[in-house]
Design a protein around this nucleic acid. Structure first.
Lengths: 235, 235
DNA sequence: CTGCGAGCCTGACATTTGTCAGTATGCTAC
DNA sequence: GTAGCATACTGACAAATGTCAGGCTCGCAG
């Protein structure tokens, strides 16, 4: 978690995949000078529930989970973000303490862009403001979607969906079926919103139905079509 | 649902309780000329899942629910909005179809402010843009909070919390305990994310513990302190 | 290579919640 | 006022899920 050779904003993929694409070369240069870059090892906190935000976090390389403690003391994973994503502007814009935590699930290189310069750009650049609004609105949509899925789908459907979520977030190996995921069964349970045992049981079911194959922590999606069907996705 | 005498924007409470407070008198006047006002009776749709947005909706008087169909065909109520609130900017900004519905739960008078003028003001007025971002971010926070509550709290806690949510949204009668709510038990179930029977059972429990009193659809919060405790709220 | 610990997995069981069937009550339209 | 319908309520039961206890396996440190 110490500082190291800072990534270059100009050649960074995040510049073109986020609201930062709306900025001029000069404005990007200014950010490049003010940003702080860090390496986060697996399971280390980028920010934690209850802290005050100091800026937005731009993921140069790696993956993080956005999670939140439940009343029962169990973690719930709300979403993932990876290389080329920005996290944390919601809380900054709400002018509140974080109500979620952000934790690296892989060793990740992440840059902090201080609040002040972010707000200045938002104020002075309507295109950037609209881009930010657009992104937050998409997040809100996804979260609304998630509410009804978690509330109204049985575990089997939610586990199937979790596998697809993991696939979206982390991708597949060259074989086109092995999940590139560092997640434990317990973390998968935190996506599904259930106990690890229930996840494991459901995965065993899928295995015996030849929908997936497992090898230790590794999971292969053997019959993706069937999984999509089980997940019962509409939108 | 027919047009009627349009509310006056200048004397409207929504002007000062929403992002519209950032606008000049002239800009408000322009909105006043372009808005469309309607009366919506209980259970009529302001907008529905799958439709394309045509603007933002400003609630002049009344209450609406924001809800979404679950995969099991059961409605889930995500939130409420009432007099002085604006709904629907999320979807407009995301440039997508609505993924939620907005339905009047009381007879309500609601004004549609067309997209074009809303976007123009957001683009030209950074204070308004920031206000909108702030509001959406707060919504996102609330939704995240809701996810873990629905996923990790038992029904008893969720029903207690639903009563408090209803109190926040609709308020109390002069006696300081009777909920001013038009909601059926089934709608309460749609907040809690469960079957109506489970809600009724839990309410009966509360009743026998002297935490609430009921009379038909009407509910009185007799021991609010205890309900807050049961709801197990943290933030 | 060997021992140890984290994390994966399974089975038995308790609890919670959903479902179904049926009755009671209260509101609305006539 | 009253008939009829929607909604509130209750009990019995079935199903889904959580909990607990224990065994297994993999990967790593020594």
């Amino acid at each position: 978690m110490h500082t190291f050779k800072q990534p270059e904003c100009n050649s960074c993929g995040s510049r073109v995949s986020t609201c930062l694409i709306e900025l001029s070369t000069n404005q990007v240069e200014e950010i490049a000078q003010q940003k702080h870059s860090q390496l986060f090892t697996r399971n280390s906190y980028v920010f934690a529930e209850g802290q005050y935000p100091r800026g937005i976090y731009c993921i140069h390389k790696g993956h993080v989970k956005i999670s939140k403690m439940g009343a029962d003391g169990r973690e719930h994973i709300i979403s993932f973000a990876g290389t080329g994503n920005i996290v944390g502007y919601g809380t900054l814009l709400a002018a509140e303490k974080y109500n979620v935590s952000c934790v690296a699930v892989q060793d990740s290189s992440i840059c902090l862009i201080p609040s002040e310069i972010f707000f200045r750009n938002v104020r002075e650049n309507p295109a950037m403001a609209l881009h930010v609004m657009h992104d937050i609105s998409l997040e809100l949509r996804a979260t609304n979607q998630r509410i009804v899925e978690l509330t109204h789908k049985p575990i089997r459907e939610r586990v199937a969906e979790a596998l697809l979520i993991i696939k979206e977030a982390f991708g597949l190996d060259a074989d086109g079926m092995t999940l590139r995921s560092p997640l434990t069964r317990e973390e998968i349970a935190s996506i599904v919103g259930t106990a690890p045992e229930s996840v494991i049981r459901t995965l065993s079911e899928f295995k015996s139905e030849n929908l997936i194959a497992t090898n230790g922590r590794t999971i292969q999606l053997v019959n993706m079509r069937a999984l999509v069907h089980i997940a019962n996705i509409r939108d």
